[in-house]
């Protein structure tokens, strides 16, 4: 069974963290993953840096740019992840834009993902229709999941379609926004979380974008299976460093 499915069988709200691979330092990838698992995080999104991350806000773009300056490449990331499954058991999701994957070669990219123990991918600029028609078979062959985003503006029939094509989880974007930390959620967001919960989708949902602290984490996971934190975690890594990860995780969960 895919580690993502296994994780969602656990009877708890999930906490997932995102970081840009190669940031703050090129060789931080493995230490960050180990520390996250030790701190009790349920799942990790590893960001494959891209020069032009359209869906991301300034924090993630800057960390991506820094990671590229540090020398991060697709090949480098795979070599860092080799052997990671000897140390880390939680689900690992690779999140990146489609162009670097195309240049690496999609088949080769997926094969490497599977070989190092990646469980699934999130590719913000690969639309569900194109995935469904052209790439799903290839993902299935490698046992890799592909997760899709929905937003408050996504029409209901499209959410149903995404639910049908998806596996793993559906990534609910909390508001009409690029990634970035917010301190609270308003009524519109809570209404949207409830509306999606009432659709009774077959794929579990996780909320991301704009989650930065215990309050937003709790609000987001009230009507979903959990939440993903990116920008706030990256800021923490930059300020406090890789060794203090446990402190960040406790600040969200406690």
């Amino acid at each position: 069974m895919n580690r993502i499915d296994q994780k969602f069988k656990e009877d708890k709200k999930l906490l997932s963290l995102y970081f840009s691979a190669g940031f703050p330092n090129l060789e931080d990838t493995v230490p960050i993953l180990k520390n996250l698992e030790a701190a009790g995080v349920d799942m990790v999104e590893i960001g494959l840096p891209f020069s032009d991350p359209l869906a991301d806000g300034p924090t993630i773009q800057e960390s991506s740019t820094q990671a590229l300056r540090n020398g991060m490449t697709t090949e480098k990331l795979f070599s860092q992840l080799e052997g990671i499954r000897e140390h880390v058991n939680i689900p690992l999701v690779l999140m990146g834009y489609f162009n670097p994957m195309m240049q690496y070669g999609i088949e080769k990219f997926l094969a490497r993902c599977a070989a190092v123990g990646i469980d699934g991918l999130i590719i913000p600029d690969l639309p569900v229709d194109v995935y469904h028609e052209q790439y799903k078979t290839l993902f299935d062959q490698h046992g890799l999941y592909n997760m899709f985003l929905i937003t408050p503006q996504t029409p209901e029939n499209r959410i149903r379609y995404i639910d049908q094509v998806s596996n793993g989880f559906i990534y609910m974007v909390s508001s009409a926004a690029v990634t970035g930390a917010q301190s609270t959620f308003g009524n519109t967001q809570t209404d949207y979380f409830q509306r999606i919960a009432q659709m009774n989708l077959t794929t579990p949902t996780v909320v991301g974008f704009g989650i930065s602290n215990a309050a937003t984490y709790q609000a987001a996971s009230l009507h979903s299976r959990g939440a993903i934190i990116g920008s706030a975690f990256i800021k923490f890594l930059e300020e406090k460093g890789v060794d203090k990860i446990g402190k960040f995780v406790r600040s969200i969960r406690d």
Binding site: F50, S51, D52, L54, L68, T73, T74, E75, Y97, F98, N99, P100, M101, M102, Q103, Y104, D125
Partner: peptide, 22 residues
Amino acid sequence: GKEGIIHGSKTLLMQTPDGQIT
């Protein structure tokens, strides 16, 4: 340029071998 994706379109674009847009 090589085939790739820029600003939402599949087209020819100038990029590094690693797929970063130059």
